[in-house]
């Protein structure tokens, strides 16, 4: 765990006044506040850093301890206890008023603070703010990776989010990048406020064979030269099984056919489906025998 230079984080001098610190914090908070930077993990991390620096430097007692030990913070507890026992013996059991660091009983429990902070000031050292506002808990964001096959039909899936198991329904045809809200499954409310929400963003992996555009699927199927020229029957594997297809004679390379209703189900619309578009890619024969070459030559002269 590394030492964090809170002055550097806020961009202020070690001699900065409380007013300077507040001004620096406000300026940076306006830049990195999560409300102003939706879905930006880097801004959120930066905001937590700024918040933590402000928590320490705006509190005279915390700032004093931080300034006193600086990079020797790892030994702060030893120094503190050594000094305390020395003081106690010299003062011969004189009653102390008890202003140890454990007295910083914060209401927010120090969530979102670094290990360095927790270690230096103790867990639960954050807070101490005068405003005891009830707030919704933090909204959680999670990403769920799915394969195209997973979204052919709606299904239930159990997820573990922050150690808690929740069972959700994944609707068929959910879009890549789409986010759904699971109300009340975010962080716990602060000071009795309601729980936050859980936002799940779906990431649908690219399929090696099928391309998707909304509810329609696109597939390229290779056919041989003779099938393309003379027509024939081929078997195509769609997402929900094999389908027999008649290829018309003289099918051109790159031509498309549509299989109605063989795409993905329409999102949240029972019984409706998109289409499957098949593009034929004609594969020319290679390694021709002398006889084949002769016959193609003969054909070319017709």
């Amino acid at each position: 765990m590394a030492f964090i230079d809170y002055y550097k984080v806020l961009g202020v001098d070690k001699k900065a006044t409380v007013k300077d610190i507040k001004a620096a914090y406000r300026k940076l908070a306006r830049k990195y506040h999560p409300d102003l930077n939706p879905n930006d993990a880097e801004a959120k991390r930066k905001f937590q850093e700024i918040n933590e620096a402000h928590e320490v430097l705006s509190d005279p007692a915390k700032r004093k301890k931080y300034d006193q030990y600086g990079e020797d913070w790892k030994h702060s507890d030893q120094f503190e206890s050594a000094r305390q026992s020395q003081r106690q013996s010299s003062q011969n059991r004189r009653q102390t008023t008890g202003s140890g660091w454990a007295d910083y009983g914060g209401s927010t429990g120090g969530e979102g603070f670094s290990d360095f902070f927790e270690s230096f000031f103790g867990a639960g050292a954050s807070g101490g703010k005068s405003r005891q506002m009830k707030f919704r808990g933090e909204d959680y964001n999670a990403e769920l990776k799915l394969e195209l096959e997973d979204i052919i039909r709606s299904h239930k899936q159990t997820l573990t989010v922050n150690g808690k198991k929740i069972r959700i329904t994944i609707p068929a045809s959910i879009e890549n990048g789409q986010t759904i809200k699971i109300a009340g499954h975010g962080g716990e409310g602060i000071n009795g406020g309601p729980n936050g929400d859980l936002y799940i963003t779906f990431s649908i992996a690219n399929h090696p064979r099928f391309k998707r555009l909304k509810n329609d699927l696109y597939l390229t199927v290779e056919i041989g030269l003779y099938t393309a020229l003379l027509g024939g029957e081929i078997t195509v594997e769609t997402l929900d099984g094999k389908v027999k297809l008649n290829v018309k004679p003289e099918t051109q390379n790159g031509s498309k056919i549509k299989l109605k209703g063989k795409g993905l189900p329409v999102y949240k619309s029972e019984g409706q489906s998109g289409d499957l578009y098949i593009t034929f890619s004609v594969k020319l024969p290679s390694n021709l025998t002398e006889e084949e070459k002769a016959l193609f030559t003969q054909l070319s002269k017709l």
Partner: peptide, 23 residues
């Protein structure tokens, strides 16, 4: 501006999904 950002982010997602057709 946040509404605009959200709208643009949705548009980017849709365009990215569309782009995959040609990749």
């Amino acid at each position: 501006l946040l509404h605009r950002i959200n709208g643009l982010q949705d548009e980017i997602t849709q365009l990215r999904n569309r782009l995959e057709l040609y990749e």
